[in-house]
Design a protein around this nucleic acid. Sequence first.
RNA 1: GUGGAUGUAGCUCAGGGGUAGAGCGCCUGACUGUGGAUCAGGAGGCCGUGGGUUCAAUCCCCAUCAUCCACCCCA
Length: 449
Amino acid sequence: MATFIKPRVPRGMRDILPEQMIRRQYVIDVIRDVFEEFGFEPLQTPAMELSEVLTGKYGPDAEKLIYQAGHTGGKEDISLRYDLSVPLCRVIAMYPQLPKPFKRYQIDPVWRAERPQKGRYRQFFQCDADTVGSDSMLADAENVNLIYQVLSRLGFKQFEISVNDRKLITGIGQFSGVPTAQLGGLYRSIDKLDKIGLDGVTAELRENEIPEDVIKKLLTLLQIEGDSTTVLNEMQEQLEDLEIAREGTAELKELIGYLTTLGVPEECYKVNVAMVRGLEYYTGPIYETVVEEPKIGSITGGGRYDELIGSFSKQSFPATGTSFGIERIIDVMEEFDMFPSTVGKTVTQVLMTVFDDELMKESLKLATQLRQGGIRTEVYFRPARLSAQMKYADAKGIPYAVILGSDELAAGNAAVRDLASREQENVPLDKVVERIKHLINTSEGRQTF
RNA sequence: GUGGAUGUAGCUCAGGGGUAGAGCGCCUGACUGUGGAUCAGGAGGCCGUGGGUUCAAUCCCCAUCAUCCACCCCA
């Protein structure tokens, strides 16, 4: 007896079956449309990079999660990419002739050897838009605008884009007077403010042996509440002696000024001085969108990274960008049933039935006409009982069936059946395409997309 | 990486030391040109994998793998 290999996929990775793939493509289409609307150009880079390109960019914790991708006898030390930003920087350094500012988007998988959880996979898609070669806060404002546009078009009603600035964080660090070695832990504790509250942060700071007077100082900063402008003004006042903090608040004020002009509603973003973000390469404004329900973490993240390209070339460029997490966005949309009814289970719009061998020829002719008319049409592959063919259409969620039997053919007709309403009508053969088109256009919810 | 829970039919799950059940789904028929209803019948499981204890293991013990949850981190 033959022994079989148990069919399975690597941990944290999965197959995306057609029904789910259709939803995915819908989300990707929306994102791509927005990106291109803002003038971002498509870019693709290899799934693997030389390991030296990736190391030393993300910080030691993240670096452990990079997949090694060498093969037996391979001479190169290569790894699967961890994100799309570092490969972009490599591209910028490699092709100096690209006109600046360079705006590109990339929608591709990345790999991280994390322990999987809901909304956390080892292979997942990032959808990145980045602007290289401009230090204008308008570029950063555009990133936030992208997030706003994409999420509202996907039907997200309530979301809040947290905005902060690495310079402001550095200022807070200096303000606290905590030695550099402890700074990482300090930031990490502060970052949890939204999750564990002031008391929780206080407790954690004490555990990390941060002196009481420092904790007190920090709490006065973290307690600042109000709209973005108020928070920034207060921060500016509290940290006015620190140049780096002044720069941070100035940047954010400029950014918010642009957001207002661009028409991004105020309730969609908020300055959150406690939001830190882990990746080491950020240098200026940073932003992320966290959804509370379901508990899935952040669905977007990004920021300015003016130094990163400098690690590949003498000539450095300021850069900023943002990233969308498709699988988390889809997880949220599925949880709340946010897909429009126009996103169906199948791409097929019409099932062309086949009665018998004689009529097969007529069915194929009609199918060809439908396809030429731009209607996605599937033909049943062999004559079968009509009930079987209907059942197939129903199981696949195909919205319409065209039935061509000897009775219809004799009258020069075909029957056009709406599977959902079970209504059926005879239509002259040369009007079938037109009729189906009309049905598709008028009955939203039964077409695919 | 740390801690915890769970792996039994396609799906959701029950059961329990003597090689297994429900609901839903699926297939067939009643229905020779019309799918979601009804009725009748049927298929489908080395009870995650490997080892141990036992006369005997799906059940007890150990290991391992996978999934989920929390932490960590992040999309």
